[in-house]
Design a protein around this nucleic acid. Sequence first.
DNA 1: ACAATAGTTAAGTTTTAACTTGACTATTTC
DNA 2: GAAATAGTCAAGTTAAAACTTAACTATTGT
Lengths: 108, 108
Amino acid sequence: MTEPTAARVFQALADSTRRDMVERLTDHALSVSALAAPYEMSLTAVGQHLAILEAAGLVVTQKSGRVRTCALTRTGFDILEGWLKARRSPWEKHLDRLGDVLDDDHTI
Amino acid sequence: MTEPTAARVFQALADSTRRDMVERLTDHALSVSALAAPYEMSLTAVGQHLAILEAAGLVVTQKSGRVRTCALTRTGFDILEGWLKARRSPWEKHLDRLGDVLDDDHTI
DNA sequence: ACAATAGTTAAGTTTTAACTTGACTATTTC
DNA sequence: GAAATAGTCAAGTTAAAACTTAACTATTGT
């Protein structure tokens, strides 16, 4: 019910702690506690950040016993790349159009 | 003094109004008033959004007379793409590593 | 069985971001 | 040169994130 969308991905990555978490997960999967270790905040807060990263499709977690292991996943990155490409292509035809518009009388 | 960074780009695009502004600027440059028209918010608020988009390197503006024209620019998109590639490449070697870690005894 | 570990839930507080109002400046148009 | 247009600035308000504490569950180790 928490479908990953571009909105969720950007919101997730807008926070520096969450960006840092993503960076620390690029090398290896981590437990919630291991992920929380470097930050001066409660485990609860880390869990909340994690939920946001999961909802954005950037992280997947799986609980085995009492340990929840967290790893990156494609979904969020694919959404990000898709958004980027969709907005770059139609624009890069008329590169830096500002100059043109100011000279021409394309009424704004 | 407001250097565009990945942090600023993500923060900028975390807001739906600003994402919408970016999308409306893909086709053609717009004045601040024209950009503001569809939104039910003050011109001041739009100006504040615009400042955030500019600081993120997503939009450039130029004032000619009393009209400020806004257009997209590469910088922010390049930063976004750079961030994305830097995190994808080192990770995609070991695709969906979560499963492995749970089976092996790579202590976490 | 008891204690420690790992994480979760609910509910409240604090901090940050979004937005508003009112007063103001600079440029056009009439 | 007055009035409308286009945007800006400062300061305050509202709404949304981020974070906290305290109490709780489930698993593992002794």
